[in-house]
Design a protein around this nucleic acid. Structure first.
Lengths: 241, 241
DNA sequence: TGTTGACTCTTACGTTACGTCAGCCTTTAC
DNA sequence: GTAAAGGCTGACGTAACGTAAGAGTCAACA
């Protein structure tokens, strides 16, 4: 199969296939005398995988790592892929609902308050209300939201400061004194706006790397921060238990 | 307020504020003697708006039009954006089913055909789809709603039975005999309450995923059913044409 | 009053995932 | 044999910023 055929079958452009070849992400099984790319059936399966992860928002670089990793288990991957798809779907549903709300309110021209407008979208104020709700119950989250709203900008600034400090030390070992001190501030901060057990704290850390939204949001302060925080939070929970 | 402060408050980076200034998307109310950007409270409100639309997936160019052009129809933009999101969700549903199928078939990777592999991954909008939506959308919806309201409990029950049967087979390929037989019943049923051309039938299928009222209603019988029906109806129309 | 450190500015190149020509070579069909 | 269709390699364009570099500004502290 040559480029055009693969393109038509998979729905991607010929340019995209060229691109993936350049990146070494999908190298055609053969090359004809004239230099034409010739794809095999196995290539097609690879492409399918690539498109899976692409649709989930992974970068091509990440996809390459995932797929070339020898410990990559296909069946296992499929199951986790499905979970991720469901998450994505929930996100989309949120967005759709918010637009619907906006359209409804839009007839009344700006009757939405600032908080309402950002419900489900402000990843900084209380980014993951829904997840938190699932994990720790409505009471805790409501408390948290309330308190965050009460203090507003000041809390936000404080939060950002802590993030920045963490970003500064993110290249140290997560169990170093420096790192543990910084992550301790985070624990303290969270407990000023709600009550977090060490267990919940560690669980939250897991989410920082499990949920793409957490990761990207946190990593804004520095690449790899989310992952670092997860490790540091786990260690913090272990130590202080 | 200067850049840093606004950045901390809103959660965006300083560079982003610079960028928005360059684009003319968010121009600070004042500029100090030294050339510092000074943002007003109103600027903050604007920024909120910008971030809101950004979170909905609009491009900065679109956002600028929406916010600066008073004659621009926001409602229209929101609706079309919502349709886009619905389509995305529909694709996700397809992918979820494809994965389910793949997992079920276990190691039997070879049992999937080439076309099956890529079901749900077609990111190219079929121009015919849009045409169908435009041509049949409103008309079909209005007609259907009217007639659905007219008939009573017995037909309602019959309808539900068909839905349940469809839900049972929704994990099969939409072009399988089983699925086509079930969707055929649906076509028959619809024609007991009105006259539907194959074209209108396919158009109605599009509405199942484009209009959330349809989607949520149908999906009550099983997640992803609306999306499945859309595909099956499309295939049915193709076959019997 | 000088100096330091935190902030700010502009300029400009880097990044991601391709789109879109341009110029030229192969293959296929009539 | 010739033209259409398809393929190849550059190479520049794009969106939405990230990331320095080099330099000016502001507030506070000595």
């Amino acid at each position: 199969m040559k480029v055009k055929e693969v393109a038509a079958l998979s729905g991607v452009s010929v340019r995209t296939l060229h691109h993936y070849d350049e990146l070494g992400l999908l190298i055609p099984a053969k090359t004809s005398e004239a230099g034409y790319r010739v794809y095999s059936d196995e290539n097609l399966a690879e492409l399918q995988q690539i498109l899976f992860y692409r649709a989930l928002g992974f970068s091509l670089k990440q996809i390459k790592e995932i797929l070339t990793n020898p410990s990559f288990n296909r069946l296992e991957a499929l199951v986790s892929q499905q979970q991720m798809l469901h998450q994505k779907r929930c996100q989309l549903d949120d967005m759709i609902r918010t637009i619907e709300q906006t359209i409804k309110e839009g007839k009344g021209e700006g009757t939405m308050t600032r908080e309402e407008r950002f419900k489900g979208f402000d990843f900084n104020l209380n980014p993951y209300e829904q997840e938190a709700r699932d994990r720790w119950g409505d009471e805790v989250v409501d408390e948290t939201s309330k308190k965050l709203q009460q203090f507003g900008g000041k809390q936000q600034e404080k939060m950002n400061m802590i993030y920045r400090r963490l970003a500064d030390v993110r290249h140290l070992q997560p169990d170093s004194e420096e790192a543990q001190k910084a992550i301790g501030k985070w624990f303290q901060f969270l407990n000023t706006i709600g009550t977090y057990s060490l267990e919940a704290f560690a669980g939250l850390g897991e989410m920082y790397v499990a949920d793409e939204r957490f990761t990207t949001n946190i990593d804004q302060f520095g690449g790899g921060l989310a992952s670092f925080m997860r490790n540091a939070m786990k260690e913090f929970a272990r130590r202080n238990n």
